[in-house]
Amino acid sequence: MSQMSESSILESEELSFLNEVMFSRLPEGNQVQPSFTLDGDQEHSEMLGRLGQAASMQMVAQFKNRRLIFPLQLFQDEFNRLTMELQAPQIFETGPTMRQWRMQPQLPLRLLEACGKEAELKVHDISLSGFSVTLPEHEGPAPEKLELQLELPECGSLLPLSGAKVRRIDQQTVAYNLLFDEPDLEQALGRFLFEQHKQQHPEWEMPDVTPKSSEMAESA
C-alpha cells in the first residue's frame, strides 16, 4: 500500500463519505483517533499483522490543490483483533512541482531560546521539511544553525526545533531545513500543522487525528 496509482487517490467527496461512515463524531472535547477494525480469520489477521510490521502503509487523499498522505498503523489486541488507525498526514501542494505545504501562521508563533527567553526571530512559515524566520532589523549574518523551541499555542507545549541554514530569501528572511532527532517530534509537528490546515479549510471536512492518551503522555 506504500505505492499507489493515481486511481487509488481519494477525491475530497470520497474522503468525506469515508469520514462520515467510519468516524462518528463525539461531543466537543472527546475526539478519538480515526480507526476501524479489520475483520477476518486468524490466518488473514496474521498476514495483515506481518504486512503492517514489514511495510509502510498509507492512504492518499486529494483536496483540490492539496495531496494528503495519511500513514496507516496497525494495532493488535489480546484477542488478535486488528485495528487500523490514521496518523497525521504529510500535506503537499500540487502543481508543476509537488512540495510540502508551508503554513503561514495567522497569529504570531513564539520561538523560545533554551533559557526560556523569547527569541527575536519570528516564524514566517513552517512545513514538515523546513521553516523560514524573519530577522530583526539591522541583524547581522544569519546563524548557520538554530536550536530553538516552538510554542504550540493550542496545547501549550514546546516543540524543539533544530534547523540548518539553506538560503537567505531576502534581506530579513532566511530559510532553514528541519532536523528531527526523534520521530515523535516530527509527528507532533505534523499533528499541529494538520490542525492548522483544517482550521484554514473547514469546508473540506477532514478527519481528526488525535493521538492515543498513552502516546500523548509519552510525548509530554
Rank of each mutant, 00 (worst) to 15 (best):
M1P: 02
M1K: 10
Q3A: 11
Q3S: 11
M4K: 10
S7A: 09
S8Q: 09
S8E: 10
E11A: 14
S12N: 08
E14L: 07
L15A: 00
F17Y: 07
L18R: 12
L18G: 10
N19I: 00
M22H: 11
E28M: 09
G29I: 01
G29H: 05
V32D: 07
P34Q: 09
D39I: 08
D39R: 15
G40P: 08
Q42I: 08
S45V: 09
S45Y: 01
L48R: 11
L48H: 09
R50V: 08
L51S: 10
G52I: 03
G52T: 03
Q53T: 05
A54R: 07
A54P: 00
A54W: 05
S56R: 14
M57V: 05
M57P: 05
Q58L: 06
M59Y: 04
M59C: 13
A61C: 12
F63I: 13
N65M: 07
R66C: 10
R67T: 02
P71V: 05
L74C: 05
Q76W: 01
D77F: 08
R81S: 09
L82I: 14
L82N: 12
A88V: 01
P89N: 04
I91F: 01
I91Q: 02
I91Y: 00
F92D: 05
F92V: 12
F92K: 08
E93T: 12
E93D: 15
G95Q: 02
T97I: 14
T97D: 15
R99T: 14
R102D: 01
R102P: 02
M103Y: 12
Q104M: 10
P105A: 05
L107S: 07
L107P: 00
L112S: 10
L112Y: 06
C115P: 00
G116N: 02
G116F: 01
G116Q: 02
E118D: 11
L121K: 13
K122V: 06
V123R: 02
V123H: 04
V123F: 11
H124F: 12
H124A: 15
H124P: 02
D125P: 07
D125S: 14
S129G: 15
S129N: 04
V133T: 15
T134K: 15
T134S: 15
L135D: 03
P136C: 13
H138A: 13
E139K: 12
A142Q: 06
P143E: 04
P143H: 03
K145G: 03
L146F: 14
L146Q: 08
L150C: 06
L152D: 03
P153C: 00
P153G: 00
E154T: 13
E154W: 04
G156E: 08
L158T: 13
G163I: 14
A164C: 04
K165I: 14
R168S: 15
R168K: 15
R168V: 04
I169R: 11
Q171S: 13
Q171P: 00
Q172T: 15
V174C: 13
A175H: 05
Y176Q: 01
N177H: 12
N177Y: 08
P183E: 02
L185W: 03
L185M: 11
E186T: 12
Q187P: 03
Q187C: 04
L189Y: 03
G190A: 12
R191Y: 05
F192Q: 08
F194R: 00
H197E: 06
K198W: 02
Q199C: 07
Q200P: 04
H201Y: 13
E203H: 05
E203L: 02
W204V: 00
W204C: 01
M206Q: 07
P207V: 01
V209C: 06
K212N: 10
E215C: 08
M216F: 06
E218G: 09
